[in-house]
Amino acid sequence: MSQSPSKFSFQQVDVFASQPLRGNPLAVVVGADALTESEMAAFANWTNLSETTFLLQPRATDADYRVRIFTPVRELPFAGHPTLGSCHVWLASGGKPRGNEIIQECEAGLIRIRRDNDRLSFAAPDLRRAGQVEPEVLAQIIKGLHLDPGAIVHSNWVDNGPGWVAVLLRTRGEVLALRPDFAVLSGLRVGVVAPWNRAKDGQDADFEVRAFTASGFEDPVTGSLNAGVAKWLIGSGIAPSTYVASQGTVLGRAGRVHVEQVGHEIWVGGTVAACIEGYAIL
């Protein structure tokens, strides 16, 4: 850290939360241009949240702001809940978009964000890797999730930056019953999805999602995974053009991710609420 610490505006927000404190937390440092990459990485390691972001002046002429996204151990080119949470904080800090949409610059490129009342949505980025999952990877997932080989209905790479691979199961109950062996899953970011049975599961959502990270923990509500899954499920006709995904149930959360296809684009959105405001001294 620098010899003379400085104060930076700071917020911790809850993303994709249908109720207060029931989504995915994110730490956001505002006006972080003076921080070095090592200082950002050290602060993200200290917060120990799944992601911490830093708002910066844009380099791209078309962007409204730039964001760098760090996990406790590495930087990500793109992530979903940090995109929406960072945009919320940028707007709350006085940011004024130049157009009808907000343009975020990140390592993955320019991400378009739109506002719809109290909901923010991002345009799902193109998949960097899609298509068939290799047999050895499927075997690793089956072993790591303690699944019968026939339990997986479909599978697909859905990597838009973080490296997600996803599998589709038959029922929400099967998804909720999973107890992953992270040692076996090591090196993989695995998303699991299954449809809700409205007669049994209720009317609040259409799909249940769980996200198992390569770092050995379950992520509460995951925008990047849901964006990749949406491209896969809608594109293959498994999901309708508009649906709601539930995530975080096993962790005591009540995340809701709203997915909508508009033309050839898929938008992924949810609500964001500020939980902590103050200063980070770095």
Rank of each mutant, 00 (worst) to 15 (best):
R66Y: 02
R66P: 01
V67D: 00
V67R: 01
V67I: 10
V67Y: 00
V67H: 00
R68K: 12
R68L: 04
R68H: 08
R68C: 03
R68M: 03
I69Y: 00
I69F: 00
I69R: 00
I69T: 01
F70G: 09
F70I: 07
F70Y: 14
T71P: 09
T71S: 12
T71H: 04
T71Y: 02
P72R: 05
P72A: 08
P72F: 01
P72G: 06
P72M: 05
V73W: 11
V73C: 13
V73L: 13
V73G: 13
R74P: 04
R74A: 15
R74Y: 15
R74L: 14
R74C: 14
E75Q: 15
E75G: 13
E75M: 12
E75K: 14
E75I: 14
L76G: 04
P77G: 10
P77M: 06
P77Y: 01
F78W: 02
F78I: 08
F78K: 02
F78R: 01
A79I: 03
A79Y: 01
A79E: 01
A79D: 04
G80N: 08
G80P: 08
H81Y: 08
H81L: 10
H81D: 04
H81V: 06
P82V: 01
P82K: 02
P82W: 00
P82H: 03
P82Q: 03
T83Y: 00
T83Q: 04
T83R: 00
L84A: 08
L84G: 07
L84Y: 03
L84Q: 07
G85D: 08
G85R: 01
G85N: 07
S86L: 02
S86M: 06
C87K: 04
C87W: 00
C87A: 15
C87T: 15
H88T: 04
H88Y: 13
V89F: 02
V89P: 05
V89N: 03
V89W: 02
V89Q: 05
W90Y: 11
W90I: 06
W90N: 09
W90F: 10
W90V: 07
W90L: 03
W90Q: 07
W90C: 07
L91R: 12
L91M: 12
L91S: 11
A92W: 11
A92G: 12
A92E: 14
A92C: 13
S93V: 09
S93F: 10
G94N: 12
G94Q: 12
G94C: 11
G94T: 12
G94I: 12
G95Y: 07
G95F: 06
G95I: 08
G95S: 11
K96M: 13
K96T: 15
K96L: 13
K96D: 10
K96R: 15
K96S: 13
P97A: 10
P97N: 08
R98G: 15
R98A: 14
R98F: 07
G99N: 13
G99S: 14
G99H: 14
G99V: 05
